[in-house]
Design a protein around this nucleic acid. Structure first.
Lengths: 165, 165
DNA sequence: GTTACTGCAAACGATTTGCAAGTGG
DNA sequence: CCACTTGCAAATCGTTTGCAGTAAC
């Protein structure tokens, strides 16, 4: 299953490189394979580690950045910038998903909602050719709701300030 | 109209500061006012410039960052990280909007779609209390579509690579 | 008067860039 | 063999932090 996807995205990359007369370097293909072996969100760091440890194929930071940029351009990867960190994600055949982000603790959860997907696809655009979306829904997760209730119950002179430490 | 909103958000800020025993500094209120005087997206830079030039009230970078973080926490401001730049936006009573982003030229357009808003509000969540969303729809804008058609028509050995200069 | 807030400058971390060496076509 | 890619290290950029002075309460 996943191997199917890997083969498909590899073909997309190959086609693009040939069409545009770019080089088919082992780095590019190995990085693509590694990306499609990661589960969910990952950082550049983690990708580099996987390449070094599991693939025995260390790649420089610069090349990681270059290749990720290429894959993003090809829409084989999406990039999220949460709070402080940047996370990447393989996105072929998964262009369309929603992230629930808790504004208290920063926890990110993925959700799928066909209703939302349909509504976005139906959304009228003036000659704009849609081919994917990212949705971030902000709010308070259940455990933070509980914390807040407990906190307010205690009286509100507590100094719950910026730093949550 | 806009003055109404300004008054409302000012009250929200005041209430928060009093409740949490934080100080009501002129910086905080002036920054809030400036934020709600900006049109659409703005950068930290632009906000600082407005404060300096139009308000005659220069504020340090550190304070801008601190205050924006506070306003984001209060959901009076949202922060977008596009490609390379970070943009902020006043968002009271405007929690819900969609951005169309062209993956070729990077142009960002705002769109409003009641269908999408409804679908997201109806989206089921497991005890997650939603209070706003941001939607990024990726695709190709009309002028880039035209460019591409012209480009492919000319023959595809042209080296249209990374740098668009 | 106390303590939080501000401004400054230094520190920091993530990303980009310049250049020499390597390698795909 | 040419020039695109890579790797390295230095440069750059946005953001955070530490500290001393200032002002809110």
């Amino acid at each position: 299953m996943r191997e199917n996807i890997k083969a498909t995205v590899k073909n997309i990359l190959t086609a693009y490189l040939e069409l545009n007369k770019h080089r088919k370097t082992p780095e590019r293909f190995t990085i693509l394979d590694a990306v499609y072996s990661m589960d969910g969100h990952f950082s550049l760091e983690e990708l580099g580690d996987k390449l070094t440890n599991e693939y025995n194929f260390p790649v420089s930071r610069a090349t990681l950045y270059n290749t990720l940029r290429l894959l993003i351009k090809l829409r084989l990867v999406v990039c999220h910038r949460f709070q402080s960190t940047t996370k990447y994600e393989a996105c072929f055949d998964n262009n369309s998903h929603c992230h629930q982000i808790c504004t208290m603790c920063g926890k990110v959860t993925e959700v799928k909602s066909q209703g939302v997907i349909d509504a976005i696809n139906k959304m009228p655009t003036r000659r704009f050719h849609k081919d994917g979306f990212t949705l971030y829904v902000y709010g308070i997760c259940s455990s933070c709701q509980t914390k807040m209730r407990r906190h307010t119950a205690k009286g509100n002179e507590t100094k719950k300030v910026q730093k949550s430490k």
